[in-house]
Amino acid sequence: MTAAPGIRFSGRASVDGVAVFDRLELVLEPGGWTCLLGVSGVGKTTILRLIAGLPTGAAFEGAIAANDGAGLGARVAYMAQSDLLLPWATVEENVTLGARLRGEAPDHARARRLVADVGLDAHAAKKPNALSGGQRQRVALARTLMEDRPVILLDEPFSALDARTRAEMQELAFRLLDGRTVLLVTHDPGEAARLADKIVVMTETGAEEVATPPGSAPRAMSDPAFHAAQAALFARLGAA
């Protein structure tokens, strides 16, 4: 992996001339976790897709740039809310999909290591329908890591999981994505309070940074400061 760049996103997006967000400024620190919160429909997925270079339903005016001046296109991995596992491919084939789509020889040893890292070595030859929702999401995480991109965009990747699996996945992702520039969209103030180096709340009029709890992520859920931050963030979202 090349060094993780910082990213500066600024601009406005509109659908049929109606602004989705306006004069939005979002700065992702290099190698840090930024959590993006905001009510439904405020444009969080749109931002992720714009950074990933994917088509959106909105017209965008503005700039998306890395602080090292190089392009972003081939440096971004995007993990959507649904796992998007191919039902006809085994766990390992899903993890090595990128290489096969580029016509490269997949690095099977590395794929197996990542499958083991997400705790699925016993399931490598299974097809996705034989896995639980949490296991599928872990395969998607392994596939994202396999791409070895310095910028990782995560769109509510853990929202469909039960509380316990979610906490496990958060820790796993945090550990395995160390050193990358991560933008995590979430609806869960607890998730943001736990993982973020930087928390940004988005409204129709712009984005506002909110203080993170003390201590470095991932923060222990038993910590009173974590609860206070979570509650404050929840109140902040209600007011937004």
Binding site: R49, A52, G53, L54, A74, V76, A77, Y78, A80, S82, L84, L86, W88, L97, G98, R100, L101, R102, G103, E147
Partner: peptide, 28 residues
């Protein structure tokens, strides 16, 4: 499914490999 095509695009897939490895199996 559009999500598969997004995935292929961010992974840097060519049009032909996307057809062969994603669109065809998904259309079976």
């Amino acid at each position: 499914p559009p999500g598969y095509l997004d995935l292929a695009q961010t992974m840097g897939a060519s049009k032909w490999r996307t057809l062969w490895r994603i669109r065809v199996p998904a259309a079976l």
